[in-house]
């Protein structure tokens, strides 16, 4: 007998991940943003090897040198130097490490906390659920900067505390969102079917429901990541985050704010870096959500 597949022309249907990737690649803007973000992350990770100078070394007779492409620029200092003669390119590379790194840590920490809270509130006993939900509502009502100011007032202004503050501020977003998603999924028939097969709700949350949430969680993570980058930079700008000797992008901005009239590049370039990074992250996030749910768009 002939093999059945030879009679019928078989239709190739991709798996969920392959399909999402296929959809994502069709979105040119998001693909470019992905490449952009990968380059930025690579630069940040490899910065100790790439920096031409010690970021804190003060070059004599090279104060406020213009970027290399401008008139009077020096090819030795690609992005120019600041008021103390420090190489801006090296400082920005090291800053990328701090900004992106702490933003990433903040996102991961808030995701883990959010997962715990979300699961607890979705399947936990009613009292605990209500308690935590109201607690998260309270956090949501507090501005993240206020939390950061409180933390730094109590423990001192360090990048660690800024990261912690951002993580705390982001947690209720994750918690609420995961709670919502879980509630939605729990009402679906496939969960009921799974519970009849394996009556263990914890196992089913991880084994049955989470594979269905990965996409939407990834989107939420990208959005939170961009918020975290902005918040970390904002805290640095206000002097509540990174210290002066290891500055992040926000700190770089605020340091050179006094010279914006005579040396605009010292402000523009770090600002541009923040702008491009956040734009890339948001574009990827949008691309992801489109790729995962193409019918909605």
């Amino acid at each position: 007998m002939l093999n059945k597949s030879n009679i019928y022309i078989q239709e190739k249907i991709p798996g969920p991940i392959a399909e999402a990737w296929h959809n994502f690649r069709k979105n040119i803007l998001a693909s470019v943003a992905l490449i952009g973000l990968l380059v930025i992350i690579f630069l940040a990770l490899a910065s100790p090897l790439l920096v031409p100078y010690d970021p804190n070394f003060q070059h004599e007779n090279a104060y406020l040198v213009q970027p290399s492409w401008m008139e009077g620029g020096n090819p030795a200092f690609i992005f120019g130097t600041d008021d103390l003669g420090r190489d801006l390119f090296s400082r920005m590379l090291m800053g990328a490490r701090l900004t992106l790194g702490s933003a990433f840590i903040a996102t991961v920490v808030s995701l883990s906390l959010g997962l715990v809270l979300g699961i607890l509130t979705a399947i936990g006993p009613r009292l605990i659920s209500t308690l935590f939900l109201r607690f998260m509502d309270m956090l949501l009502a507090t501005p993240s900067l206020l939390i950061a100011i409180l933390l730094t007032a109590l423990f001192g202004a360090t990048l660690f505390h800024a990261t912690l503050a951002v993580a705390i501020a982001l947690t209720p977003h994750f918690g609420r969102n995961i709670h919502q998603l879980l509630e939605e999924e729990l009402a679906k028939p496939y969960v009921e079917a799974a519970l009849l097969d394996v009556p263990n709700i914890f196992r089913n949350v991880f084994r049955s429901i989470f594979p269905n949430l990965f996409g939407r969680l990834a989107v939420q993570m990208m959005l939170s990541f961009s918020i975290a980058v902005l918040d970390i930079a904002a805290l640095g700008f206000l002097g509540l985050g990174a210290s002066a000797d290891s500055p992040d992008w926000g700190r770089l901005l605020s340091e050179s704010l006094d010279y914006i009239q005579i040396a605009p590049w010292t402000v523009t370039l770090p600002g541009l870096a923040i702008f491009v990074t956040v734009l890339c992250i948001n574009l990827i996030g949008q691309g992801l959500s489109q790729a995962l749910d193409p019918e909605k768009y």
């Binding site: 028939p189 496939y190 079917a193 799974a194 269905n212 990965f214």
Partner: peptide, 11 residues
């Protein structure tokens, strides 16, 4: 009733 909904789409 509906196998579309009762089978987990990601498993």
């Amino acid at each position: 009733q509906n196998a579309n909904q009762s089978l987990n789409p990601r498993i």
